[in-house]
Design a protein around this nucleic acid. Structure first.
Lengths: 338, 338
DNA sequence: CGGCGGGCCTGAATCGATTCAGGTCGTCGC
DNA sequence: GCGACGACCTGAATCGATTCAGGCCCGCCG
């Protein structure tokens, strides 16, 4: 038996379809009495609104798309949780796309999102999709960039001051008396990596410490970090760093593993600081100091910017929220704490 | 300017709307010549199919819903990746719901999914939603249970043999000569926990070792594991276990942290084995042995079962795929490996 | 040469919620 | 008593892709 529709509800409640719709969407316009009759009918028939029909008429869906780089990176899932928690308040749902840093896949998802006329899109872009995003917006789906501050101010965005984060990390190590810092990072073309390194360079230069020993890895995962650390351990004793600043926590975990394996003491022999402050850095065998990015808040703020644009589509002032990173000190730099 | 629709395309290509639709959906029925004209028109107008209209007509969306317990648990994101990778082949998208183990939130998402007439649903249920799931199926959205083998065979499901996993873990520790094993687990009401403990009990009994020392925690996260381990360390020396079997890897990480902090050697003083084989267990300071659950494959298989049911809705044989867990040996039990 | 089949195309009807111009009735102010 | 107004309700028109009964034309068979 086909699912009940507004017409069935209207018939049972003895009102017109228009009234049913008013109960559903603008309950103020309907007398309490009638409204109750309609609600009873809905209940009795097990009526569930057909979102497709609503969407067709209204011209837009009530779902928001989110495209992330990597669902298995806790940094992004934390953002996603922020998005999801915020969206729940608007009772909108989330269509998830995982580009996996693959531009082709990103495009495929953009097609899907466009067919679905998503109400809005949160994206950390991979490929050159600027034009596509503009088209999406022209067609009524606002876009907010996450963890990317587009040079142009064409879209609202949320991001974190990575330069400052790098500066904080290096300064902390310097404050602890370390003088020979290695930066173990991902590919330089990743803007974040370059900026974190840059901030660290600044701190080192400012203090007149030894210039940063920069190691470029080809990925930002733990195994790359482990290999990087092994390289460092092969250096002659007088060049061996006394502290490692890892471009993210996954790398830091790999570094910790290699050092532990080599029998070195952390932080006594070599201190480690990471970036992102993921759960697994805080809960490592030796909890790892890190630069915290407020990922949940980023998700929430991005969602709020998006919702504002969705609900007030004509306002053309794109906002750029830049979060400040925060130093979190743990045993991997400060030794056993109280 | 409003987005182009099939009528515009038809006009430009000099054909009827029916033909445009045929090009889009059944290209075989159209002469290559006409098809090309239509495709050109689509290109020229930047036409993008309106999914809502299609959905309204066809009665079902092309989107699949997935409801997970916790997006920040790598076990679930690995499953989600399997789902997503598989779905991409069918060019369908994924609506994500995160119940956070909260039954109310789960219900809210079920409402949304139902309004959207999702093509199907993958779910690890929290509350008692059996009736809701049946209704969803009656209305044309098949359901597959993930990591839950419903007593009834009312839905297809994928799950893992947790009893066997527990057995494998304990056997491994016994093989290494450990005789006093502690099980550090989550709440007993979680079926998985009970079964893993049960399997371990069996192994211990079979070998005549000391009965399992069972510690029940109120969560399954790392901090609970740490507290649990601290409790174990307070035991008198002759009762202190020589091996810990943690109900999942998060707990194992917490245990590792507490033991490391107390200056104990792993595995020499106490061996540790976890469960799930998440990335962060493999990459811990001392890589943790674990019972691997094939999460990506579970996601894929669940999706395949679901797609089969979507495409062949009348076949009423619900399948239950039970995966076998696998022992992964690392340093936390076997010591430094080659 | 008539009839039949198949390939290709047409276009009105359809899905179901929302919208909005318009109708009805009761109340209030003067 | 009358016009104005507001509160409440009605129902046809609408959104855009899909479907399907039916039309046209060509080639082939008997």
């Amino acid at each position: 038996m086909a699912t009940a529709n507004v017409r069935d509800v209207a018939a049972l409640a003895g009102v017109s379809v228009g009234t049913v719709s008013n109960v559903l969407n603008r309950s103020k316009r309907v007398s309490p009495d009638t409204a109750q009759r309609v609600l009873d009918a809905i209940e009795k028939l097990g009526f569930i609104r057909n979102d497709a029909a609503r969407q067709l008429r209204v011209g837009q869906s009530r779902t928001v798309g989110i495209m992330v780089l990597d669902v298995s990176n806790p940094f992004f899932t934390d953002i996603a949780r922020g998005v999801e928690d915020t969206l729940a308040q608007f009772s909108r749902s989330l269509v998830l796309g995982n580009s996996g840093e693959d531009a082709a896949r990103e495009l495929a998802y953009l097609d899907l999102f466009e067919e679905q006329r998503v109400a809005g899109l949160l994206i950390t872009p991979v490929g050159d999709v600027h034009a596509r995003l503009e088209r999406l917006r022209e067609r009524g789906s606002p876009v907010v960039l996450v963890d990317r501050h587009e040079n142009a101010r064409a879209f609202s965005s949320v991001s974190v001051d990575d330069n400052r984060g790098g500066y904080l990390a290096a300064s902390h190590l310097l404050d602890l008396g370390r003088r020979n810092i290695a930066f173990v990072g991902g590919p330089k073309r990743v803007l974040q990596v370059a900026q974190r390194a840059g901030g660290a360079q600044d701190a080192v230069a400012e203090r007149g410490a030894r210039p940063l020993h920069v190691l470029e890895l080809d990925s930002m995962r733990a195994d790359a970090g482990r290999l990087g650390a092994e390289q460092l351990l092969e250096l002659p004793a007088h060049e061996r760093p006394d502290a490692v600043f890892a471009a993210n926590d996954l790398i830091a975990l790999g570094v910790l593993r290699a050092l532990t394996h080599a029998g070195l003491r952390v932080p006594d022999d070599i201190a480690i600081i990471g970036y992102d402050d993921i759960y697994f850095a805080a809960n490592a065998a030796i909890p790892i100091s890190s630069i915290r990015q407020p990922s949940w808040e980023m998700g929430r703020t991005a969602t709020e910017l998006l919702m504002a644009e969705i609900e007030e589509p004509t306002k053309h002032d794109y906002r750029h929220v830049v979060f400040q990173p925060e130093l979190i000190v743990r045993e991997s730099t400060a030794g056993a704490l109280a």
